[in-house]
């Protein structure tokens, strides 16, 4: 079956201060219908840029986007004008951390729905009200919320409204960029559990972006990890207990587990992510890598380890790392 989203060789350049800076390079992944893919990375890794590029929300005067992005088989990067506008909202919706603060403060929640639906040709206000109430019900909000203004809602309720808005046009794909970072863990859990339930119910796909790998491993079906503008590893959630890329291994390790006290000391990753205007030659992670060898001076390819389930890694030494794993586990 055709994937809902198919990204191949995506790159993004930002234009800053008269310079051209490549912030995303050679990113390839696919999301099947009803699947949730988690994209993890640190700040500056380019993960949010991937979201913006896939949703076609980067402005041409600020950024250049290349490679392939197919939405239900349609070349999404080639669309322009009205075609882009229609496809964008009907096929992709974006829920971001800032979205809940981007609700128009001077109109009530119903107007937010009504404006959105009207813009896409649903002009019957009575039906729109009905539809808005239904959507709110999906995210467990009572109908009365329609008459409230954004400032009268808590952060969690606002984010639920944003999710309901995102669902309004039955998109095939919802991109969630740090949707719950500003919320506390209990509210986060309520909302994300709801998203999972809705996903099962309605069958949309999700690209979930966050810095919190620990959360992704509990939430999503598959995870992809980004470092310095590139994907370094992807695989099903279970794969990451034996991940093959030293960065993802270190990242998994760098969350103290719930029952771990300091007597069992863990180490973080030495150094800091590179400056993208001067990325390290060869593998971009090699200056911080504990497995570094001479071969790392040449840039590693994005290499499939297995096809089904898809596991791919960008590391020249993944075979050695896998073998070492096997020997230590046995």
């Amino acid at each position: 079956m055709q994937p809902v989203l198919h990204v191949e060789g995506l790159w993004v350049d930002y234009f800053t201060r008269g310079r051209r800076l490549r912030v995303v390079q050679d990113v390839s992944f696919a999301i099947e219908r009803g699947e949730m893919l988690g994209l993890a990375g640190e700040s500056g890794s380019g993960k949010s840029t991937v979201a913006l590029a896939v949703a076609r929300l980067l402005r041409p005067e600020n950024a250049a986007v290349g490679g392939m992005v197919r939405l239900n088989g349609t070349d999404f990067l080639a669309l322009v004008g009205e075609g882009l506008r229609q496809t964008r909202w009907k096929s992709v919706a974006l829920v971001s951390q800032s979205a809940m603060n981007a609700l128009n403060p001077v109109i009530n929640i119903f107007r937010q729905f009504d404006d959105m639906l009207t813009a896409h040709g649903y002009t019957d206000a009575v039906q729109n009200r009905h539809r808005a109430a239904e959507l709110l019900d999906l995210v467990d909000l009572p109908e009365q919320v329609l008459n409230r203004f954004p400032h009268q809602l808590s952060g969690g309720m606002k984010q639920r409204v944003v999710i309901a808005l995102a669902l309004a046009l039955h998109p095939d794909l919802i991109i969630m960029d740090e949707p719950t970072t500003a919320l506390d863990v209990i509210v986060e859990r309520e909302i994300l559990s709801k998203v999972k339930t809705l996903q099962r119910q309605l069958g949309f796909s999700v690209l979930f972006i966050t810095h919190d790998l620990d959360l992704l491993l509990r939430l999503t079906d598959r995870v992809a990890i980004m470092y310095a503008g590139q994907l370094v590893e992807t695989g099903p959630v279970g794969h990451f207990s034996r991940s093959l890329h030293p960065y993802s291994r270190a990242l998994v390790q760098s969350f103290p587990s719930l029952h771990q006290h300091a007597s069992d000391r863990r180490r973080g990753i030495p150094g800091a992510p590179p400056d993208l205007s001067h990325p390290p030659a060869g593998c971009r992670f090699h200056p911080r890598c504990v497995f570094v060898a001479d071969v790392c001076q040449t840039a590693p390819a994005w290499e499939a380890v297995s096809e089904d389930p898809l596991i791919a890694v960008r590391c020249s030494r993944w075979k050695e790392i896998r073998d070492e794993f096997v020997s230590t586990v046995d």
């Binding site: 912030v23 590179p274 400056d275």
Partner: peptide, 9 residues
């Protein structure tokens, strides 16, 4: 934490 291109330090 903003996910912007890391401006060179």
């Amino acid at each position: 934490m903003i996910d912007a291109p890391s401006a060179s330090v």
